[in-house]
Amino acid sequence: MLTRRSLLAAGVASLAAPARAQVVTTLGSEAERVTILSDGGFEMPLSTLARDMPAAEIVAQAGPSDPFRTPVNVTCLRRGSEVILFDCGAGAHFLPGTGQLAASLGAAGIDPEAVTHVLFTHLHPDHFWGALDDFDSPLFPNARWLAAAPEIDFWTGNKVYERLPADRHAFAAGAHRIAKGLGEKLERMAAASEWLPGIAAVETAGHTPGHVSFAFRSAGQEVMVLGDALTHPRISFAHPEWRPASDHDAERAVATRRSLLDRLHQERVLAIGYHLPGAAGRVERDAAAYRFVPA
């Protein structure tokens, strides 16, 4: 089992108190409802927001709170008989303050047995490790579990440890454990394709090698579940060229942010961010960059 010591070695320290389970927000109609659920949150050092940037510049954009708190938002789409989750939180073995999804589902009146699909943006701990319960069985026993084939190949490949710095080896070990627990239930999907009717995966690699976001229509509007393509409510929008420490391929992540921000702005998409306070909002132009405006 992964220990707190190994997780701290992975470069993410948590000082957060346990978060209260909650429904963050609800959008759309009863026939096609988007519910954003809290899996809690954790704290990270300001320095992780941008590699090689002076601390004063980071503080000027993000504020002086160090460490800063990042929420964990899990999106649920209910349409007809389908109950679709986009990612499934951190589970019990990541960081204190996370692992609240099961309680939040209860608060929203969603039975785990009713969940029909879980679609993964990527396989980082706070998105993937919640797939198994305390007995290492799938938390949603009747669900299909879908992830991009390049993402599965990277995290479960024999050479993953060679392709990661030592402080990320715990992430790979956890991904191996969860993937093994899901077994053949974990379905491999093409990164840029329609995974379910009306729900298309959008390639947004960089944060991880096979990262995807998800685009669909709900209540007459375009919606995109971003995962970790945009992670900070100020810096990701005002400075897409800054390189967070959590990005696997920094340059590709920069290119992804720039093209994604332009699309979200031009197409007036309702964006849902896994780590954005309030989760849902619009992208607006702000001089030469952008800003996030909560819905």
Rank of each mutant, 00 (worst) to 15 (best):
R263T: 10
H169P: 01
D167S: 12
P45S: 07
T208R: 11
V23T: 03
R78S: 14
I110T: 03
W145H: 13
T116Y: 08
I178K: 05
S218W: 13
N158Q: 14
D286Y: 09
M1K: 06
K180W: 14
L15P: 02
G278I: 05
A92P: 12
D66G: 07
E194M: 00
S6W: 02
F42M: 06
W155P: 05
V225F: 07
E43L: 12
G181R: 03
I84G: 02
V293P: 09
P45L: 13
R243S: 11
E113H: 10
D133T: 10
R217S: 14
E222A: 15
Q266D: 10
A173P: 07
A148L: 10
L196H: 01
E284G: 06
S213G: 11
G198Y: 08
N142H: 08
P277Q: 06
A16H: 08
D153A: 15
G227Y: 01
V115Q: 05
S218M: 13
V212E: 00
L260N: 01
P141L: 04
S236Y: 01
D286S: 11
R144V: 13
A148I: 09
A219S: 05
I199K: 09
L95R: 09
V83H: 00
A31H: 08
I152D: 12
P138D: 03
M53S: 12
A238G: 05
A21W: 06
G220T: 01
A31F: 07
R163P: 05
V212G: 01
G97N: 02
A50I: 10
C76P: 08
H232C: 06
R217T: 14
T208C: 09
H232I: 03
A175E: 04
P54N: 02
A143M: 04
L27A: 10
I110S: 01
H248F: 10
A205P: 01
S259C: 12
G198K: 06
A60M: 11
G181A: 11
R5T: 14
E184F: 09
V269D: 11
S193G: 10
D228K: 07
F128P: 00
F292L: 03
L27N: 08
S38E: 02
E222G: 13
A31D: 11
H275Y: 11
H117N: 07
P125F: 00
E82D: 15
R144C: 14
S81A: 15
A170P: 01
H239K: 11
A219M: 00
A143W: 03
G281R: 10
G109R: 07
E30R: 14
T204R: 00
T35N: 05
V160D: 05
V223Y: 05
G198E: 03
D136N: 14
T70V: 15
R188K: 08
H117T: 03
Q100F: 02
G11T: 01
A253P: 02
R51L: 12
P71L: 05
A56Q: 15
A250Y: 08
E222C: 11
I178H: 04
P18Q: 06
Q61T: 13
D66R: 03
A19M: 08
A287M: 10
E30T: 14
G40E: 00
T70Q: 15
S6Y: 00
A170T: 08
A238R: 06
D111E: 12
A287C: 14
D228S: 06
T98P: 00
P150C: 12
D286W: 04
A17M: 14
P54D: 04
P277S: 06
P18G: 04
F42S: 08
W155V: 06
V59H: 13
D39M: 08
D66E: 03
R282T: 09
L139C: 08
